[in-house]
Amino acid sequence: MSLSQTRMSLNDGAGTYFRSRRARVSETLWAYAFLAPSLVIFAVFVFYPLIRTAHQTFYQPGLYPDAPQRYIGWEQWTDVLGDSDFHATILRTLLLSLMTVLPALVLGLLLAWLVNQPLRGMSLFRIVFSTPVATSVAVASLVFLILLNPQGGILKVDWLTRPTPALMSVALTNVWQNLGITFIIILAGLQSVPDDLIEAAKIDGAGPWRRLRSVIIPTISPTLMFAFVILTIVSFQTFGQIDILTQGGPQDATRVIVYDIFTNRGSDPGAAAVKSIVLFGGLVLLTFIQFAALNRRVHYGD
């Protein structure tokens, strides 16, 4: 046994494995065997299509059927990014996101805060407010079609045939369908707030609103951030609601980015690819914002 090996076994101390070269190799082999199934699926059905999408942004279909694709370089990027129609689509997507995320967050916080009061019967309200989790995009959209249907909907409104109200209708459906998961996430956050923190605020004479504003919301801000990011990601992916309620109309008022890609993927695959990568960029940006926010919490927070 060489000197360095002896030192290593001494340093490792009790409770850890003696890691010989052979043990290290075997551990690595086990690790890669365990990771292999996931890695294969991710490689084939996530990263390969992503690379193909990026590749597609530089090509256009041939001029006749079965002709090879034509390389056109960055032309497609400049075309799409300079297209005022696409600017409108992005603006619409952001608007829908805003009209989805903010109401869902505020309502979710309100519901979770009310249910978290130490009162009887709250388990019933917990189930009621979580209910939208059990509804799919299709179920939620078809249910809202009853309320909003231009011919004799329950609400007697003509929203789906007019541009701005149509986008608001999609947002309303989004808010309702995502309220359940928002409520569950925020409630989980509220339940991890220490009781003595609330008690201390009570002793200091803080009323319920003040406790919510100055104690609860700052304490659960990482949870609210998590809910914010989830909701934003989900709202960027809105598709089914539009497919069922408005089909992108009226006058393109609800043609958000995913619906745009879906409808134009056959006629202009290159442009659809550019738009897909733009959507991906938006999601990456969001993730980095979340990381930055979480890091700040580590530095200044608890």
Binding site: S38, P49, L50, R52, F239, T287
Partner: peptide, 24 residues
């Protein structure tokens, strides 16, 4: 690196890659 790669797949939902995935 691999753990980061696993987490990164969350940034690539169906909505981003469905056209090429469907082709596949």
């Amino acid at each position: 690196v691999l753990f980061a790669l696993f987490l990164a797949t969350m940034m690539v939902p169906v909505e981003v890659i469905f056209t090429q995935n469907f082709q596949l």
